[in-house]
Design a protein around this nucleic acid. Structure first.
Lengths: 151, 151
DNA sequence: TTGGGTGCAAATCTTTTGCAGGTGT
DNA sequence: ACACCTGCAAAAGATTTGCACCCAA
């Protein structure tokens, strides 16, 4: 079994993640951390994020249509992604654990973890849209409609 | 607004998805459908899956560490992925709608959809593992342990 | 006829990996 | 000294896209 050694880069990556709450991508962390370590490589960032995630020190979040994001908060909680501004935010007021237990009690296999991601329009974008609509009457979040054959 | 035209390829892709329950990747569909359309290209499969998903005729499923999968069943239901065999299966006995409403009622933005994915060991792999363990005493699903510094 | 759809291949984006040299223990 | 870790760059994997031709409406 491989023994883990200390590395300044790994510590910096971990700390960077602890000090921000925007659920950054590997590249966002890379850009930020390069201020402190100008020579760090993106590969190192990926390697350490993957390692920290395997160790359970951070969380990797995979969602539809976007690059993986990382979260320094490992307490069980859910996430929301805004399809307007792309922001990912915490949704920690829903009891996911109860939900997970409910599933586990009726499932024959073993449930180890559960990912819950909500998609929609975030409070800020919704507010902006409502202000606009009050003026123009148009709804810029309306999904495009197509003329559709059966398939 | 673009008008949609019928295409045999799109119909075949849609039907292929309706007739299977293994939550295939784009490539799996491509391989299967090539029996009927030897000249179809992977790009066409991707384009149509994306289109059908936008139209709400099928569902795209994004999960950790695997290629996107597609589901012909658009009724709200959750999924489970086995980390041993990689199979993705339905978990439709949990009331996700209630869960989604619970979240929506306490959230200031608009929740449009919700993805719930469970990860663990599927019933079949669990059974096999238990049979093996009864003989050898070893647990092949034990996660590797590392000696860990603070970070 | 016209504009959407297709096949093909190249491009893009994200993430992983091989290698040679650096560093923690 | 011995692994582990890093930077660099190339590779890999998944998905998208430009283009010329084809086909449904």
């Amino acid at each position: 079994m491989a023994a883990l050694k200390y590395s300044r880069q790994r510590e910096a990556i971990y700390n960077n993640l602890q000090h921000r709450k925007d659920h950054p991508t590997a590249d966002m962390i890379f850009v930020d951390i390069r201020k402190e370590f100008p020579n760090i490589s993106l590969g190192t960032v990926y390697r350490n994020l993957s390692l920290l995630s395997d160790l359970g020190k951070i969380q990797k979040l995979t969602a539809d249509g976007i690059a993986d994001r990382f979260d320094g908060n490992i307490l069980p909680h859910d996430h929301f992604i805004c399809r307007e501004c792309g922001a990912m935010m915490d949704m920690d007021f829903v009891d996911t654990e109860r939900f997970k237990e409910e599933a586990a009690s009726r499932f024959d296999g073993t449930i180890e973890r559960c990912s819950v991601i909500f998609y929609g329009i975030c409070p800020e974008c919704k507010r902006k849209a409502e202000a606009e609509r009050a003026q123009s009457g148009a709804n810029r979040f309306a999904k495009p409609v197509k003329i559709t054959p059966t398939v």
